[in-house]
């Protein structure tokens, strides 16, 4: 093969540098038109410069990675790692077209965003934050520090190992990872943990009770103490949360829900109902 006359090998340092460019700048120019597109190009730029000595190849490479791209920047980093591996093969003469690289990127950014959003934004972050809040509300400074440093370290670790896994294992690894039963098991297990903590938070932090009281004949009847608390403690907070959850499943906008809470709360509080 004529391309094979000179072989360019990437060093661990090159891959590492590219990772940190992504890690830091993935959302530095976040925008509606390309999302993380310019950030992807930034991370690839030094790699492309090393791989493609010919100017037209370099221009092609840069333009290839400036297109629309959007995924979870942590777990999704596996895509970037594998893209680097593809570019390296291409530069060394493998028959990989630019379109194939982009098809790979756009094909996986959606699934990885799905996995990342449910695992990272859905469970890992709320878990750290919930524990941080429970400490912080008592005035314990460990709460914010845990979120600040503990969460940062966790996320950087996840992103870095995803990136390196992608580079080492290449494109096929990602598809098999997504289909692998173990990934689903992990997501399921994380979901259980997250859901259980949310249940605890309802009891602990949602404050909602009624002040309605009346007398039946001669007997005073306090709706909260004699009915709701008698059935189950924190019954109303649970009902309120599940009602709002039900609204969100009906795709009611968050802004409307917030407005509704404000109106009901202020009116009910002013009238002495709650």
């Amino acid at each position: 093969m004529e391309h094979n006359e000179q072989s360019v090998k990437l060093t661990k340092k090159d891959v590492n540098k590219s990772f940190w460019l992504w890690q830091l700048f993935s959302h530095a120019n976040y925008n509606y038109e390309r999302m993380q597109g310019t950030a992807f190009a930034m991370a690839m730029a030094p790699i492309l410069k090393k791989l493609y000595p010919k100017k037209e190849d370099l221009v092609d490479g840069l333009e290839r990675h400036l297109v629309f791209f959007n995924t979870d920047p942590n777990l999704g980093a596996v895509i970037h790692g594998a893209t680097i591996a593809m570019e390296e093969k291409k530069a060394n003469g493998a028959d990989i077209s630019g379109e194939a690289i982009n098809a790979f990127k756009t094909g996986l950014m959606g699934p990885m965003a799905g996995v990342g959003d449910s695992l990272i934004q859905g469970v890992i972050i709320p878990l750290f934050v919930a524990i941080g809040i429970s400490l912080g509300l008592t005035g314990n400074l460990l709460g914010p520090l845990l979120v600040w440093f503990g969460l940062t370290a966790t996320l950087v670790l996840i992103a870095r190992s995803s990136w390196m896994k992608g580079y080492e294992l290449g494109t096929s690894a990602i598809t098999s990872m997504l289909q692998d039963g173990r990934m689903k098991t992990w997501i399921g297990a994380a979901g259980i943990l997250g859901t259980m903590v949310m249940g605890g938070l309802i009891s602990q932090y949602v404050g909602f009770s009624t002040k309605i009281a009346f007398t039946i004949g001669q007997v005073p009847f306090d709706l909260q103490a004699n009915l709701f608390d008698a059935i189950m403690p924190n019954l109303l907070p649970l009902a309120l949360t599940l009602f709002i959850y039900w609204l969100t499943t009906k795709r009611v906008k968050t802004t409307w829900i917030l407005l509704g809470v404000a109106v009901v709360g202020i009116a009910g509080g002013a009238l002495g109902i709650f």
Binding site: M198, G207, T249
Partner: peptide, 16 residues
Amino acid sequence: VVGGMLPAVGIALNLR
């Protein structure tokens, strides 16, 4: 009262 109710919104959105 609103202050007490609002955490329910945050929790419900995560549950979603």
